[in-house]
Design a protein around this nucleic acid. Sequence first.
DNA 1: TTTT
DNA 2: TTTT
Lengths: 177, 177, 177, 177
Amino acid sequence: MARGVNKVILIGNLGQDPETRYTPNGNAVVNLNLATDESYKDRQSGQLVPKTEWHRVVMFGKIAEVAGQYLRKGSKVYIEGKLQTRKWQGQDGQDRYTTEIVVDINGQMQMLDSRGGSEGAMNQGAPQGRPQNQQYNQQPPQQPQSQSGGYGGNPQGQQPSGGMPEPVDDFDDDIPF
Amino acid sequence: MARGVNKVILIGNLGQDPETRYTPNGNAVVNLNLATDESYKDRQSGQLVPKTEWHRVVMFGKIAEVAGQYLRKGSKVYIEGKLQTRKWQGQDGQDRYTTEIVVDINGQMQMLDSRGGSEGAMNQGAPQGRPQNQQYNQQPPQQPQSQSGGYGGNPQGQQPSGGMPEPVDDFDDDIPF
Amino acid sequence: MARGVNKVILIGNLGQDPETRYTPNGNAVVNLNLATDESYKDRQSGQLVPKTEWHRVVMFGKIAEVAGQYLRKGSKVYIEGKLQTRKWQGQDGQDRYTTEIVVDINGQMQMLDSRGGSEGAMNQGAPQGRPQNQQYNQQPPQQPQSQSGGYGGNPQGQQPSGGMPEPVDDFDDDIPF
Amino acid sequence: MARGVNKVILIGNLGQDPETRYTPNGNAVVNLNLATDESYKDRQSGQLVPKTEWHRVVMFGKIAEVAGQYLRKGSKVYIEGKLQTRKWQGQDGQDRYTTEIVVDINGQMQMLDSRGGSEGAMNQGAPQGRPQNQQYNQQPPQQPQSQSGGYGGNPQGQQPSGGMPEPVDDFDDDIPF
DNA sequence: TTTT
DNA sequence: TTTT
């Protein structure tokens, strides 16, 4: 139930392999960095300048499992989720904010590669009988942890590494849920 | 032209009156804080807990002018835009990142109030013959400045005030465009 | 599960009160006619001509119940669903096709009236403690019948009445499900 | 300008090569049939049954030119447009209605094939230096004819061929615009 | 950090 | 009529 609409639709490519973690309950949580490209005309040179926007995506549940298994660096993917801004503390004790696209039970994912993302990546462990272009409209099974926040996930590429906690340890040990 | 899809669709209410600024070229730039609500069931209490997500919206061009004129604190609005993350420097010299929904020439806005957002706000200067429920699908006229970044805008409600530059002055004097 | 994306997002007003029916299993099925307006410039006169597009919407499950209870002629509503084209037989034995927006367990609805659609309609049976601006993101409960087709529903406003079967009777008696 | 939202987002495959026509002004008009797949569980057998939904898409302007040039039978494509229902006369003099997804100056298209749609089709005239995965967010140039209706386009696969006018002739000669 |  |  909700009062309002909060929807994000992206088609882009993964900047690196997805990072998979698990909640204490055994639910998968996957972090992606997704690039969407747009070129624009520079006002001075009049030239077409490419511009890349990077998006931090967090997936939960069944979609997360599929994403962790089949997506790789370079994979093209369609994603539907919602915006969520998390607050965290920098080393200096100041608040920081990170906005992510949350893909949970209400979200959607569709792989758009006809032949796998990157051959190299697939050799490093991707399954053989890879289901191409499958889409998962995540339905009944699990309860995403998304509300509890603090699941961690390293917003690399957005925050200076010096100012970020090490979320992996937090994720396994410290986070109170 | 773009390679990828980057789309955000929101329906929510303004947390405060919009802030309007102008570029040196005279183009309007409007900042909004938009709340979308979603309630979820708490795992412990089993109760329905309301959860509000706040979104920073930046509008350009004709849509910005309309938004600045007719939207007020509390107004309900439909917005279609794209995600953009800006980098800025905190007072401590460290990088900060702010993610905004940019509504430019390709975006869309629709006012959803049948009688204006808040009566009080309207008395403070909103025009009488207010066009209700009008939608503006911003088309040909201007070139949004969105690419040049640095137009400022105070991301209040998201960043600690101590760590933010004063964008109003920057906007008028210092920003190099 | 799906391979592909099929998504429709509408904000419009109901042309008349919703029609509610029930499947033999007791699941609600609601038909709406929704108007979305767009004005365009006539090439000859140069004048702004209003243009209304009518959409046939079919809702299932919990969303249908809410829509049937709270929406009325004139109500403004946000709808997210998918396109589906049904084939039916005209009186002349020829095939006809009707395209509908199906709002089922994956869809979404949000009422956008601050004070109900039309006062008159509300007097004709709408409940008092009407939940305003509530949104229902239909989740786990029921299995929509949407696939079995043939639930009927009178696509008035789109098909000439002379060429349409009487779906109400069909709905109660003849449809094999 | 519009009052309301009317948006369709599809990812699917072309059932056949696109059909390109030109208005008397020389503007391209392209018709596509797009398949989106969804599988559902049959209530009786409990089996996963594939279900294909076919969509009639009409494109105008620059997007139409690109689609006509680069899309082929089997191509996977992302499309954003709006719903429009056209009325036409069957041979029996009765009204018929066809719902189409109109992709005009406000729409969007993105090719999602990494290596072209179908090799066979490409041999039949597709250009060599094919720009893969390019997206066109159609902006300033032309005025779509979409409002004047009657541009024709053969809704094959939806209407019985016996009941349809021959739109190609109409398109070139008879349509009054 | 991706993609063409 | 497409796709896996």
